[in-house]
Design a protein around this nucleic acid. Structure first.
Length: 643
RNA sequence: GCUCCGGUAGCUCAGUGGUAGAGCACUUCCUUGGUAAGGAAGGGGUCGAGGGUUCAAUUCCCUCCCGGAGCUCCA
């Protein structure tokens, strides 16, 4: 009877028939012995399931092997179970929390008396090896809620989770050898599939991320299918560690934090200040070309303006407390928008004036909890390259288009590839659904008109308007928050800003907030890591270091340095110690060019140019030609060095 | 803010219940050098701060401050 047979449709369209109840593994075996061995799981009409899952009805089926992008998180989720298995072996009293796969690996949270030590991690890792050796199958069992309560009676965290599940939900548990977990699955077929993994760190984490709940101990680890991939990942972590902007910032004298000044407050040293001011100069040139006007507004403002803007209502916990001056309370500004609105309102605006684009390198102060401060990346005082565009609704598309050009030009200059995210209306939102839809469509259609790829973050917008986020990808593949553009329906209302239209009536303009680098502090911190401290010529605090071979050639070398300095090049003479010593020093400081001058160069008016990272491959050239090369590299803001 | 780990010279770090050491950096002298450390001598520390235990504390205990890894949050 055909009712005993089910039809399985493979991705290539081929249809196979099986007895009802045949498992995914049976299908894989039927397709071929190679696939049977490689199979980890399968996707059934969009749902990922275990190999052991019996098939009950006609369905589409795709076998998932190591090569499938979905496979890695499967492996890592299973790795988390193997970790928990090992921890339970060594610490039978450990309560189990959650253990998911995450972007770069997995973690598992445990409730234990004492925190884990590095030695514990090593022991767990060895125990995990044993669990892998034992090659326990991951067995999936459907249970009733009542059965589950019994199974996890000693695991209060699991019971809490269990009680949240609806009565009609399918509840499953997974067993691998001695370990049983409440888990939706799916998993790889057995623990033996986990071959290349490493535990990385342990730290406290609140149960369910809630600081009012108990703190659990979280162990992070990662896992891969191939040894090389794991090695590569570990190397990448090592590389990230070497690029740490706090370490390089110290080594290269870029910035410091002084506890006499306070946590989260950055002091820019001269070399760091050069980088920042070069970026600011570049950006000023860029935005003037794009029709912005530069403004300045005060750091301290009467707190009443933050009542109007709504900041005291919505942002108070991030604002520093008031300073009282002659009975009036002032606050350090947490954002620049209110000031820019005052500037807008300084005159009656006509539609002919719009768009108005005010830009400011505006320093703002935000009270961040001490635990989140991190070098230049998370601070309490920072300077935004902020701008507010006041325009009519009809002008929004062209303004967005212009911003896309601006962002693209800027990110190319710094050598960042990027991706775009569109965030739409959240649950709690100001303005009408109509208004939001119009704004979102405007953003969408501009992106689509340009054929740009973007991801939609449903409900990810701010309460006052939708936004575009640009995510930067750095030199070692990490993602950073980049430029953002936000539409704002809120502040124009709150401040009652207006313009006079061609109908001689009063209208409300649309307000766009945008930043390019975001915060100078965070951006420069990110750049330090992106370039690993080896800045492109135009940003390098010291662009050329001139090295006389011996004291005899100081005058000659000095003339060469003067030639460069006379044209604005940051060139410096270093005369002491041996040449080898000075070359080593310049390489460590990541100076783009070294110019060596000795007897030969003095005789024919040349300079022996050594390029950063190029080793002994020096090039002897006319000093004028060298100057031209340096000036050209600076002028074009070239990312590479011409050797 | 919370949990854990840490704080010794400008930097990176070792060390000890009897008031401290290395390398680099710094200063001086010698060396006058050809592409990633030439040689020597010297200066420099309330061992994060305060309190306690002890004959004696940088070391052990407590409190606080600061930093780090996370949680949460974010430009």
């Amino acid at each position: 009877m055909s009712s005993h047979l089910i039809r399985i449709t493979l991705p290539d369209g081929k249809v196979l028939e099986f007895k009802r109840g045949a498992t995914v593994a049976d299908v894989a075996a039927a397709i071929g012995p190679g696939l049977a061995k490689a199979a980890l799981a399968a996707e059934l009409d969009g749902e990922v399931v275990d190999l052991g899952r019996p098939l009950e009805r006609d369905t589409g089926l795709r076998i998932i092997t190591e090569r499938d992008p979905a496979a890695l998180s499967l492996l890592r989720h299973s790795a988390a179970h193997v970790l928990a298995t090992a921890v339970r072996q060594l610490r039978p009293g450990a309560q189990i929390g959650f253990g998911p796969a995450i972007d770069e690996g997995f973690y598992y949270d445990f409730g234990v008396e004492a925190p884990f030590t590095p030695d514990d991690l090593e022991a767990f890792e060895m125990e995990m090896e044993r669990v892998v050796q034992a090659n326990h199958s991951f067995e999936r069992h459907r249970v009733t809620k009542e059965e589950a309560r019994g199974l996890f009676q000693d695991d209060p965290l699991k019971l809490e989770r269990l009680e949240e599940l609806g009565d009609d939900e399918v509840i499953t548990v997974y067993r691998d050898g001695p370990f049983l977990d409440l888990c939706r699955g799916p998993h790889v077929p057995s623990t033996g599939r986990l071959k290349h993994f490493k535990l990385l760190s342990a730290a406290g984490a609140y149960w369910r991320g809630d600081e009012r709940r108990p703190m659990l101990q979280r162990i992070y680890g990662t896992a891969f299918f191939k040894a090389e991939e794991l090695d590569q990942h570990l190397e990448r972590l090592e590389e990230a560690r070497k690029r740490d902007h706090r370490v390089l910032g110290k080594e290269l004298d870029l910035f410091l934090v002084d506890q006499r000044v306070g946590s989260g407050l950055i002091l820019w040293r001269p070399h760091g200040a050069i980088i920042r001011s070069e970026i600011e100069d570049y950006e000023k040139e860029l935005i003037r070309r794009h029709g912005y006007e530069i403004v300045y507004t005060p750091h301290l403002m009467n707190e009443r303006i933050f009542e109007v803007s709504g900041h005291l209502e919505n942002f108070a916990e991030n604002m520093f407390g008031p300073v009282e001056i002659e009975g009036t309370r002032f606050r350090p500004k947490p954002m620049n928008c209110p000031g820019h609105i005052c500037l807008y309102q300084a005159a009656q605006r006509s539609y002919r004036d719009l768009p108005i684009r005010y830009a400011e390198f505006g320093t703002v102060y935000r009270n961040e909890r001490s635990g989140v401060l991190h070098g230049m990346l998370r601070v309490r005082g920072f300077t935004q390259d902020d701008a507010h565009i006041f325009c009519t609704e009809e002008q929004v598309p062209s303004e967005i288009g212009a911003l896309l050009d601006l962002v693209d030009e800027m990110l190319r200059t710094f050598g960042y590839p990027y991706s775009i995210e569109l965030s739409t209306r959240p649950e709690k939102a100001l303005g009408t659904v109509q208004q939001w839809k119009g704004a979102e469509d405007a953003l969408r259609s501009v992106l689509e008109a340009r054929g740009l790829d973007y991801r939609v973050e449903e409900g990810g917008g701010a309460f006052y308007g939708p936004k575009l986020d640009f995510k930067l990808i750095d030199a070692i593949g990490r993602s950073w928050q980049g430029p953002t553009v936000q539409l704002d329906f809120n502040l124009p209302e709150r401040f009652q800003i207006e313009y006079v239209g061609d109908d001689n009536g009063r209208h409300r303009p649309v307000m766009l907030h945008r930043v390019l680098v975001g915060s100078m502090e965070r951006f420069v911190g990110g750049l330090i890591e992106h370039y690993a401290g080896a800045f492109p010529l135009w940003l390098a605090p010291e662009q050329v270091r001139i090295l006389p071979i011996s004291e005899e050639w100081i005058a000659e070398a000095s003339a060469c340095a003067d030639l460069l300095r006379g044209r604005g090049v940051r060139a410096f003479l270093v005369e002491r110690d041996s040449l080898s010593y000075r070359i080593r020093e310049a390489e460590l400081r990541k100076v783009p060019y070294m110019g060596v001058i000795g007897e030969r160069e003095a005789a024919d008016g040349t300079v022996a140019v050594r390029t950063r990272g190029a080793g002994k491959k020096q090039q002897v050239m006319e000093r004028g030609a060298f100057l031209d090369r340096v000036l050209e590299g600076i002028r074009t803001r070239s990312l590479g060095l011409e050797a």
